[in-house]
Structure formats: structure tokens, C-alpha cells
Write a protein that binds this DNA or RNA. Structure first.
Length: 523
RNA sequence: GACCCGAUAGCUCAGCUGGUAGAGCAACGGACUUUUAAUCCGUAGGUCGCGGGUUCGAAACCCGCUCGGGUCACCA
């Protein structure tokens, strides 16, 4: 059977294009040569970067040989010259050049190289040396196929111009990069680095909270009632219980139940789900940090937030460096991070907005006057907006969008803050703060409402809205009220969107740069 | 959800006022024992997103659909 019949292989695979067919042919050739194309392991002695670092600096006129190393990774560049071949091997640490010489590894092994492709995982053994141009290189004595790549990765070509790596024909389609994140990661070390930075940020935040005696907990994602925020939920159905369940829109109400239970400092880092539009700053599932602390008010929580941010910033900087130098999935260059150092400036909501609008006290304006002011700054359909919504729109336009460096805005009107305690000495306001930076909200926090009677009134107002068809409103959570009736200590609580925080700290502008597998329509 | 823009080879792109598809890289064959966007010679590779229409003729013009991007609306 020397003649291949190129029929579609069994198992439903069809239409192998010629590039992939060539790789299948090489796979067969390897098997025929007695080479196992999918190995079970490899005893690596060094990462690429560590191997390169083993070689002493180049000395003019000397051809020093280094120690023998065993390195493994993907083939990312291949330059065959007849009886010699140069390649680059990539692993998590970086890349190292390989030098294959027919005299060195022998005819049979050298022939196996014909079956190698970009993207294959191989392991090699050999001594280090420097090439004529001074690059530290492994002179391969033994090569092992570890895993044959049957589909070409979208490698671009790289050259270094004035110390800067320039890519040619790079994999740059933002949609494909997001859909096939594995390929994006495989060919873009900087994307791997970016997500390592995200991991470092989350780890640092955990460390920060753990160090001040916070307990990490897990609360239900599937909830019979949703609450803790205003948002449209995802609905699902439990078959055995034959009842609807909602994917949580916030962790808040369960975490505060734990405060009631005597776990005085709790936090959760997990996904919330909101059934809303997708754009560069919204993904239907996103990572939220919420933390609650008994006996703390919003003043204390502000200092927690400041320290947490410094900590997160430090972690990201340790991975990415001061200069960041991040290019987003949409090709946008990351912006430089403005300096920030606690204590962050504080603006109070009422005087800041009043001053920005040039009025003595914005709260004293009639709703009609608010609508007119909102319309003037470009808000649409002002007639349909409630008074709190109008205030919020005006605030967003006049204040929020203009805040660049991290700044706390404190003491929101009660009508804007249904979950916050009234402010001591001014019951028209609440003890609430939000942290803004680069025109975006980074944190939202308050002295938590712990009066169960007040809480019931607010739930009932929500229930009324829900009955009237507002699917962002929640119902009365009787179980939560029962918990609060047992007694809830004064508590400070904070919510911080991790994806948004990461975007801020890296200067990226697209949430796909913060989420490995963003939600997308199926292909 | 509304409006605007886009979809051409595995990747990155070109393709004029309609005349029947191109480049570089990747691939395949050949040469080459220190190259590095290796080089040189040669070859192959495309239902031009899908469906319909106009036309002698459509990648191009028109309509619809799918997917994506941007702006807006909702939101963290």
C-alpha cells in the first residue's frame, strides 16, 4: 500500500487541507521510522532561559563549550541548510537556539528532522556553545519527538531591530485570538505574561486579605433568589427539584449571612453572571471580589481598599515591569499607568457635583430641572429616567468621567444607595464610597445596612418593581431577613471587579485582555 | 436592540469605474555543514462568509442572512 488514498479519515473528520495533510503524512513517516510521535514524558534539566544563562559571557577568539543540558518545548523557528539545521525552541522561560549537525547526530537521526514542523514539541540533549554571531545554542546530540503538531500554529516571523522584537505576519485577528486563546497563547509570549500578571494580582489580593485575618469562603452560584445588585440574571432550572434557579449577580447577601454567623471577616473571589450586553468592558460572567468586615465602617474600608490596590499594583508590576508595555487584543497600545499613592484624594458627592454643575445644591433642584440639565449634556430619553437615575447620569458626566487618578467619592444620596446605612449626622446621605480611576468605577462600598426592618422595607419596594415587570429588581429574601433579625453587627463591605481592576492596572481597554476565554457567539 | 464598517489561501494583506484571483510568510520538491524575517530555484494551494438578484459576465453592484468590529443604549 504505497499509494495513499486521501479519503476523509474515519471519525467524521473531513477536508484536511494540504498543509494539515502534509503533517499527517509526516506523522505516518515517523511511525514508519519507529519514532513514537506522542511521548509520555521528558526529563528536562533546564528551562531555556536557565540554559542560556549557564554560558559565560563571550570571550573574543575563544570557543568555550558549556555543560550538557536537556531542554524541551515547542519548535518556533526552523532554518534547514542541508546538512545542518538551526531551530529555536520555546518553553515557558523563553527560547533557545538549537543546532543540528548531520555529523553530530548521525544520518538516521538527521533524517527524522524531515518530519518536524513548527509547533512540534521536542526534547533535545546537547552541550551549549556560542555560534559565530555569539548566540548561546544547544549543539544537539540527541533529539526526541514529544508531540507532533498536526495543525499549523499561526506563527509570525520575528526579527530584532534595535533591540525591539518586530513581528511579521503576526496572528493579529482579535476575534480569532479570543476564540482560539490556546493559539494566541502558544504564539504570543506576552499574552502568557499578561495572564500570569492577572494570576499574580489575584494571588496577591488573597494574600493581603488572608494576612489581616480574612477567611476565604465559597457561597452559592445557583441561587433561588438573586440580589445584592440590580441586574438581569441568567435563569436555569433544576430538574429534580423542579424549580427555577438563578446564577448569582452578586455575592453580597450570602457573605453577610456569614457575618451574622460570626465569621467576622470574609471574602469571596468568584464569578458573577449578568444577562446583559457584551462590549469592551462587559462580559456576561466576570470575576468579583467582595469582602465584609464586622465592626468596620466605610472609613476603615477605604483604607483597606487603598492597601489592596497598592498590593495588586505591586504584583502586576513585578510580572510586567514598570513600563507595562502591553498591547491589547484589539491592537491598542496600553496606556501608561498614572502614579497612585495612598491616601487617595476624597471628593464628596454632593459638593463636587453641585460645583461642577454650577449650582448651590444639586439635591434641591426639581426633577424637571435635573432632566433639563441631563439633556443638555447629551443624556437621551431623559423623560423616562427616575430622579436617582438622572442624578447618576449627571454625576457620571460631570465628575466620574473626569477622574483620572484613583479618587474616592464619598457620601452618596440615600436615593442612589438602597443598601447603604444613612450617614451619621445627615440622613439624606449614606455612608458609601466609590473609587474611580481613569473615568471608571473600580470599587463600590458602604457601611452595610444592618437594620432588618429597614431592609424589609427596601426589599418590598424592590418586589413591587419586580411585580411591575422590572426584571432587574429582586424579590423579598425572607431567609436573608431572618438572618439579619438574629442580629448583624455593624459591617463594612466592598466589591471590586477583578477584570476591571486588572484592565486598569495593565492599561488595557478591552475586557478580552483580562479574560482568557471571553463569552462569544459560537462559530 | 439601533446605526456605521468589515469578512479574499493555514497566517498577514492587495485586488481600480464589473472582464473570471495575487503577494509575502507557512507548505511541498531541489541546492546549501554557524543560520537567525536564512538565501536561491521550482511546485502546489482559494465553493472570494452564506443565500438570492441584476448582468453576456460579479470577489466587486443590489437585497436578505450569519459572524465580527466600532458607536449608542443597559451595566461592573
Amino acid at each position: 500500500m504505497s499509494e495513499e488514498t486521501p479519503v476523509g479519515p474515519p471519525g467524521g473528520e473531513v477536508d484536511l487541507n494540504f498543509v494539515m495533510q502534509a503533517r499527517r503524512d509526516k506523522l505516518d513517516a515517523l511511525v514508519n521510522l519507529g519514532v513514537e510521535p506522542f511521548a509520555y514524558g521528558f526529563d528536562r534539566s533546564h528551562f531555556a532561559a536557565a540554559a542560556v544563562a549557564l554560558m559565560p559571557p563571550a570571550i573574543e577568539g575563544e570557543n568555550a563549550e558549556g555543560p550538557k543540558v536537556r531542554v524541551a518545548g515547542r519548535i518556533v523557528a526552523w532554518r534547514a541548510h542541508g546538512k545542518t539545521t538551526f531551530a529555536h525552541l520555546m518553553d515557558p522561560s523563553g527560547r533557545v537556539q538549537l543546532y543540528f549537525k548531520k555529523d553530530q547526530i548521525g544520518e538516521p537521526q538527521y533524517a527524522v528532522l524531515d518530519c518536524f514542523d513548527l509547533g512540534d514539541f521536542i526534547g533535545v540533549t546537547g552541550v551549549l556553545f556560542r555560534t559565530r554571531t555569539g548566540e548561546v545554542t544547544v549543539r544537539v546530540e540527541e533529539v526526541q519527538m514529544l508531540s507532533k503538531s498536526l495543525r499549523p500554529l499561526p506563527f509570525g516571523k520575528e526579527e530584532v531591530v534595535d533591540g525591539v522584537t518586530v513581528r511579521h505576519s503576526a496572528f493579529s485577528d482579535g476575534e480569532l485570538r479570543s476564540r482560539q486563546r490556546y493559539a494566541d497563547l502558544a504564539v504570543h509570549p506576552e499574552v502568557r505574561r499578561l495572564f500570569r500578571a492577572r494570576s499574580a494580582m489575584i494571588t496577591a489580593i488573597r494574600g493581603f486579605l488572608n494576612d489581616i485575618d480574612y477567611l476565604e469562603v465559597e457561597t452559592p452560584v445557583l441561587q433561588p433568589l438573586y440580589g445584592g445588585a440590580t441586574a438581569r440574571p441568567f435563569t436555569t432550572h433544576h430538574a429534580a427539584l423542579d424549580m427555577p434557579l438563578y446564577l448569582r449577580i452578586a455575592d453580597e447577601l450570602y457573605l453577610k449571612r456569614l457575618i451574622v454567623g460570626g465569621l467576622e471577616r470574609v471574602y469571596e473571589i468568584g464569578h458573577d453572571f449578568r444577562n446583559e450586553g457584551i462590549d469592551r468592558t462587559h462580559n456576561p460572567e466576570f470575576t468579583m471580589l467582595e469582602f465584609y468586615e464586622a465592626y468596620a465602617d466605610y472609613e476603615i474600608m477605604m483604607t483597606r481598599v487603598e492597601k489592596l490596590l497598592v498590593c495588586a499594583h505591586g504584583a502586576v508590576t513585578r510580572v510586567l515591569g514598570e513600563e507595562r508595555n502591553v498591547t491589547g487584543v484589539d491592537g491598542a497600545k496600553g496606556e501608561a499607568l498614572p502614579d497612585f499613592q495612598p491616601p487617595f484624594p476624597r471628593l464628596d458627592w454632593l459638593t463636587t457635583l453641585s460645583k461642577a454643575m454650577g449650582v448651590p445644591n444639586v439635591m434641591e433642584l426639581e426633577t424637571g430641572a435635573l432632566a433639563a440639565a441631563a439633556e443638555k449634556v447629551g443624556v437621551q430619553k431623559v423623560g423616562t429616567l427616575s430622579r436617582p437615575k438622572l442624578l447618576d447620569e449627571l454625576f457620571q458626566f460631570h465628575v466620574e468621567s473626569k477622574i483620572d487618578t484613583p479618587t474616592f467619592v464619598v457620601d452618596y444620596p440615600l436615593e442612589l444607595s438602597p443598601l447603604a446605612k444613612p450617614k451619621r449626622g445627615n440622613p439624606a446621605l449614606t455612608e458609601r464610597f466609590e473609587l474611580f480611576a481613569r473615568g471608571k468605577e473600580l470599587a463600590n462600598a458602604f457601611s452595610e445596612l444592618n437594620d432588618p426592618l429597614d431592609q424589609r422595607r427596601r426589599f418590598e419596594a424592590q418586589a413591587k418593581l419586580k411585580a411591575a415587570g422590572d426584571d432587574e429588581a429582586s424579590g423579598v429574601d425572607e431567609d436573608y431577613l431572618r438572618a439579619m433579625e438574629y442580629g448583624m453587627p455593624p459591617t463594612g463591605g466592598v466589591g471590586i471587579g477583578m477584570d476591571r481592576l486588572f484592565m486598569y492596572l495593565t492599561g488595557t481597554t478591552h475586557i478580552r485582555d483580562a479574560i482568557l476565554f471571553p463569552t462569544m457567539r459560537p462559530e
